[in-house]
Write a protein that binds this DNA or RNA. Structure first.
Lengths: 337, 337
DNA sequence: TTGAAAGCGCTAACAT
DNA sequence: ATGTTAGCGCTTTCAA
């Protein structure tokens, strides 16, 4: 099935054909500066003629570098993997890494064999790792940061946060913007459907909402928590309405929960934004066609992923990197406010 | 923890500690049947004691197998990567592969350097590849099937289809089920918002819808095509309504377009299912909380991904595999019909 | 059933 | 600036 000739051409074959030593070919392949331009040309010609591609395994074995970066998605996150946010982060990482010499190793880390994942990562199989959105529970990955270069996506929650490198969307600022928008629209009884409080995004968005309401001297006790799913958003909205107190504004910690809230608001015979103005978070594609179109806080998960990859690659190259990178958010104003 | 002094423990260290040769340790690690149970035990003890993890590069170099499977997502697909369907397929693949000795190499293949991708795949970097949903345009991958074991996700559209191995959801049957459901509900003027006709899913779902209407002796000319996005679904619905002919049933080729159609139907002052009964496809999480909840055709993209991985792994193991595997679909009946 | 020995294709000192 | 020479850690005949 695999043969197109007699096996792949080796560096040695290139050397022979170019009339130089293997070491020289290796230098050319790795872009060493100390090779004559003429020699480089001859070698490259031979490489092209033979359609030579370096053997990763051999290269890795000899150099003790794998050129592999693992993208670890904890299973708990994978459960909401169908959430476009995570999918896009993965996409961003893949696209960025494609520009480099690194290969992407996608790992769904089930909690069952987290030890296996640990072993794998520390077993010299990868040069570094990218870990997306993990909860306060799995400190294992924050710990790993001491033995393997790791860049987290989203602020890690744990004891070792102080010396972890991470890239995050500015959840606090995004939530403040959302709350401010509601306040500027004249709303005074603003509720929020917060996200899981064991996830940084859940905590930070709630904190931002609260901070802005406090600043405006408005009450900030209309809080219900959901798990980021539409169904839970609907349930939270139901609880909010059941409190029997008036509500004229709502900030949902993500668009999926906002979608759930929409249906409950409608069921209750209330209008959006007439009775309740709504702001979501994430700007996933459904908000656009919702009725009314959802005002939301946009971030670019693809950019987040790409930035994580960039930071790790720079760090692997020995360059100094900032420990924290914040990705900006922006308000997408539509008809729900 | 880590052995003092040098880096990771090597097979040789295990051999020394267990008092056997490196060859024997290798056999144990690879599960060779011809090693005494006692020896196996001793070796495994040493492995555990040293926290030994085989070095992939060395293993790969010596065995001439990479133990790497590439998951290729054409960029055109990645654009709709935020579509939960693809994200879930990726998840399924990752979970399945985690059960094996294979490593997942995720590749977003940009059309710009498709040649680079080709080289990479044929350069001995992977043992096999999984390719998801590609269009009629990129025959490159169907061709690759001759030189590298490949399993496609979704029926490949191209000249070499006949000798490609693929796993697909049964789009034709799913669409027939949707149409039948609408017919059984007494609808007689059933329209469809078909998906892109350069994608197998688009073609097959349209064909299934048409076949079922023909069978029932109903007209099947109410067709508009969308690109699977909510926005395009809305546009298609607008065109359908603009025809000025009565419509009492709608089959959307995916839930995202159904979501778009919903908003247009509402805008037009029509009710669901009163005026128009709607059936979607994919059962993504929004359908549940739509108003009214969307009746749809469910497939399991995670299972699809897992099955693709399973088929490829079996094939790499030299076992005979079925060229075509069809994953079942099922009707999820909610309030939109 | 086990061991000895010869590489797998490449990089990295160290020489020249 | 280029070549020589050892390995990197493992699998795999081939013998014993």
């Amino acid at each position: 099935m695999m043969q197109s000739g007699q096996g792949a051409p080796t560096l040695e074959m290139v050397a022979t054909r170019a009339g130089v030593s293997r070491a020289t070919v290796s230098r050319v392949v790795n872009g060493s500066p100390k090779v004559t331009a003429e020699v480089v040309a001859v070698v490259n010609e031979a490489i092209a003629a033979l359609d030579y591609v370096p053997n990763r395994a051999a290269r890795s074995l000899a150099s003790r570098r794998t050129q592999v970066i693992a993208l670890v998605v904890p299973e708990s996150t994978a459960r909401v993997f169908s959430d476009p946010f995570f999918a896009s982060v993965v996409q961003g990482v893949a696209l960025e890494l494609a520009q480099t010499d690194y290969t992407l190793n996608l790992l769904i880390a089930t909690e069952a064999d987290s030890e296996k994942t640990r072993r794998y990562l520390l077993g010299g199989n990868v040069d570094g790792a990218l870990v997306v959105s993990h909860h306060s529970g799995d400190h294992s990955y924050t710990r790993l940061g001491r033995e393997l270069p790791i860049v987290f996506g989203g602020r890690p929650m744990g004891a070792d946060v102080v010396d972890s490198t991470y890239v995050d969307v500015d959840n606090v600022e995004g939530a403040r913007t959302a709350a401010r928008h509601l306040i500027e629209a004249g709303r005074t009884r603003i509720a929020t459907i917060a996200g899981r409080q064991d996830m940084p995004g859940g905590v930070d968005r709630l904190a931002g909402w609260r901070a802005e309401l406090e600043l405006a001297g408005l009450p900030h006790d209309l809080v219900e928590v959901g798990d980021f799913s539409p169904a839970d958003g609907a349930a939270a909205m139901r609880r909010l309405l059941a409190r029997g107190v008036p509500i004229d504004g709502l900030f949902a910690a993500n668009d999926q929960m906002a979608a759930g809230a929409y249906s409950v608001i409608r069921e209750a015979g209330l209008t959006i934004p007439g009775d309740i103005a709504v702001v979501g978070y994430d700007d996933d594609r459904y908000g656009e066609t919702a009725a009314p179109p959802l005002t939301t806080i946009a971030q670019s998960p693809v950019d987040l992923g790409a930035e994580m990859a960039r930071v790790l690659v720079r760090r692997l190259a020995g360059e100094p990197v900032e420990r924290v990178t914040m990705m900006p958010t922006r308000l997408v104003s539509r008809a729900s406010v």
